[in-house]
Simulated scan of single mutants.
Amino acid sequence: MAESPRSPHPRIRLDDNFASPIRFSLLASLGEGIELDFATLRDVLQCGDSALSKAIAHLQAAGYVAARRGVVGGRQRTWVRSTAAGRDAFAAHLNALREIVALGRGGEPL
């Protein structure tokens, strides 16, 4: 009797765009309808300006976040929000992580 083919390990569905803890945390902070300014994101994520700028640029290039710029009180500001593609990719990444944890506990994937 032939063994049924095993399904691929869920790790192959992890999205490398979330390999950085800052990029992962950034998307986690931006749920649907949430738009945060750069300074608030920097404070929430407890990271430096350069690291946050790089994370935003990376996720923007992937199509996962959108940034808009404006002026408030004579100062340049940047606001960031997640895109539908970013939210979908993040949800799929979280599902893959949950399946990995379930497998590690001896259970079947969720």
Rank of each mutant, 00 (worst) to 15 (best):
H58G: 08
G106W: 04
L110K: 02
V80E: 01
L36N: 02
A67H: 07
K54Q: 09
H9S: 08
A84L: 08
L36K: 07
R23G: 10
F38E: 12
S82M: 11
R105L: 08
R77L: 05
A62F: 10
A102T: 02
S7W: 06
G86A: 06
S50H: 14
F18Q: 00
L59R: 04
N95F: 04
A96T: 13
R6P: 04
S53R: 07
C47L: 03
A96C: 11
D88Q: 15
L14A: 05
Y64V: 00
V101D: 13
I56P: 00
L94G: 09
A2S: 14
K54M: 10
H93W: 05
N95M: 11
V44E: 14
R75F: 02
R11G: 07
P21E: 06
S50R: 13
I34A: 09
F38K: 08
P5H: 00
A67K: 11
F90R: 01
G70I: 03
A67C: 09
A61N: 15
A2H: 10
P21W: 01
I12D: 04
E3M: 06
L94W: 04
H9R: 05
L110E: 12
F24S: 05
V44F: 15
D15C: 12
T78S: 04
A102Q: 05
P109N: 11
T78W: 00
R75H: 08
M1D: 00
A57I: 11
D88F: 00
A19C: 06
R75Q: 11
G33R: 10
L26T: 11
H93I: 13
A62N: 14
H9Y: 10
G48L: 01
L14F: 09
R69N: 07
L94P: 06
L110Y: 10
D37Y: 10
E32T: 10
V65Y: 04
I100W: 02
V72G: 06
Q46S: 15
I56V: 12
F90C: 08
L97G: 07
A66D: 14
D88H: 12
A92Q: 15
A67D: 07
R42K: 15
R23D: 06
I34M: 11
G73R: 11
A55R: 00
E32M: 10
R87E: 13
R11S: 13
G63I: 08
V44W: 05
R81P: 01
V71G: 01
P5G: 00
L30Q: 03
A28K: 13
S82A: 15
A62W: 05
F18Y: 09
R11I: 06
Q46H: 15
S29V: 00
R69Q: 12
I56E: 01
N95K: 15
R98I: 07
G104R: 12
P21R: 12
A66Q: 14
T83Y: 00
I34P: 01
A19W: 02
R77Y: 11
R69C: 03
V72A: 13
G33A: 13
S4G: 07
S53F: 00
A61M: 15
L94Q: 12
S7Y: 07
G86K: 04
A102V: 03
R23M: 07
I22Y: 02
